[in-house]
Computed example of a mutant assay.
Amino acid sequence: MKVTVKDYLNVRVGKPSVNAPTYQYLAPGSELEVEEQLHQGDKFEGVTTWLKDAAGNYYWSGATSRSETTGNQWWIGDYGIDLVWPHSKGEGVTVILLDSGIREDSPDLFGKTMTKRSVIGDDGTDTFGHGTLMSSIILGSGRSIHGVAPGVELISIKITNDGGIRGQDFLEGLNETEKILDADNNKQFVINCSLVSFGLGQQFELDAVASIKRILSHENVVLCAAAGNNSFRNPHFEIIPATVAGVIAADGLIKVNGNYERLLSSNYWPAVNVTAPGEYPIEALKDLFPHVDPQGTSHACAYTTGLVALFASMATAKGKKYNHLDAASLLARITFRDTGFPPSTQLIREKIINTSSDS
């Protein structure tokens, strides 16, 4: 693949290190032919990923057009998301976020196309941080964090002030979602429910499941939900919305010393659709929300929402609608659910780009 040099860049011989021998530097605007795979190496200005050419030379990715793939955003490179961006960044897709609201002045949301709503009697501004974090994972502009699908539009429906789920507020959020969907059957929607609920009573579960099923009956909607962080295996009760048939459920993994591990706190059961990245670098938000949790299945859900938005965007560009059956089919082919290992960049290219383009 070809990348463009953005800043003066040393050619490092033999290993991805700032201390490796160098015999020349490349000027901005130069083009490089390199492998698609990213290599871990010395950390420089916060970036630990390096590119390699056929001759065994290494190039620090932070000075190239692939610099979006920073060391603390390993999923962008490991899952090949930056290979999808030339084909789609989520344009034409609207994400509906049921969460704690958003802060438009957060660095990676500033200037984005977003609408705030609330079912709890305020203006929809996030005072807790969870909703702003999820939004940044999905569509962050890259001022400090790159979202998976930075081209989507966002409708935020605030259903909580503190991250806790109250049955009636959640139901009202679902009802508000139904109104949005019923008002526009021509748009493509992906819904993000990173907050989960359980044990709120049989009537709540019945009402919530009925609403979710109505939402999923739309042929232009995918609903993604977090599996939750209770370390449950094969739960015998409803975790809403993740256990509802048709919902794309996500549990989380992290990367430790180059190895992928499922989050110990992740709920997991055989019907979970995807094991997705469950961590997030919070440097961009630590001043606004110092208590934001850097790990959890909430993050995995937001990542999955962004990924699905990329699929849906490519489908809508061909005049097609995209639903939960389409998403589940493709996710099953590009993720290793039981191990959490990301697919190779070749598999990403074959399955995401080619399959989505042909679907």
Rank of each mutant, 00 (worst) to 15 (best):
A302R: 04
E91W: 09
K158E: 02
I145L: 09
F170E: 10
I76G: 05
S356E: 10
S313P: 04
H218T: 02
E68W: 05
V274I: 15
I180M: 14
I138A: 10
S313T: 07
T4R: 10
K320D: 06
T160W: 00
E45T: 12
G163D: 02
A210Q: 13
A284E: 10
F311S: 05
D105P: 04
K187F: 01
L109V: 12
A149P: 04
D78F: 01
G41S: 09
L109D: 15
L263R: 11
S88M: 05
I137D: 08
D287N: 13
H236W: 08
T127W: 06
E91S: 10
F204V: 00
L97Y: 13
A312C: 09
P281T: 12
L264D: 15
K2S: 13
I215W: 05
N220S: 07
L331W: 06
T335S: 08
W74H: 11
L38C: 05
H218W: 03
V247G: 03
P107K: 05
S359P: 04
G92V: 10
N175T: 13
D105A: 10
D99Q: 13
W269G: 00
A63S: 11
K351C: 11
A210Y: 01
Y59I: 01
A227N: 00
T132N: 15
A328E: 12
G258E: 15
D126V: 06
A250H: 04
V221W: 04
V18P: 00
G77Y: 03
V95A: 10
Q188H: 03
C193Q: 07
K213C: 08
I81M: 07
S65L: 05
A55M: 12
T339Y: 07
I76N: 12
S356D: 13
N19M: 09
N161I: 11
L264H: 13
A271E: 11
P342R: 03
N323Y: 02
S344E: 06
S135A: 15
Q295S: 11
A249T: 02
G147V: 09
A249V: 06
S231I: 01
E261R: 06
K255Q: 14
D326S: 08
G14L: 08
Y8K: 14
C301H: 03
V13D: 05
Y280K: 04
D122M: 03
S265W: 01
P21C: 02
R143A: 14
T94F: 06
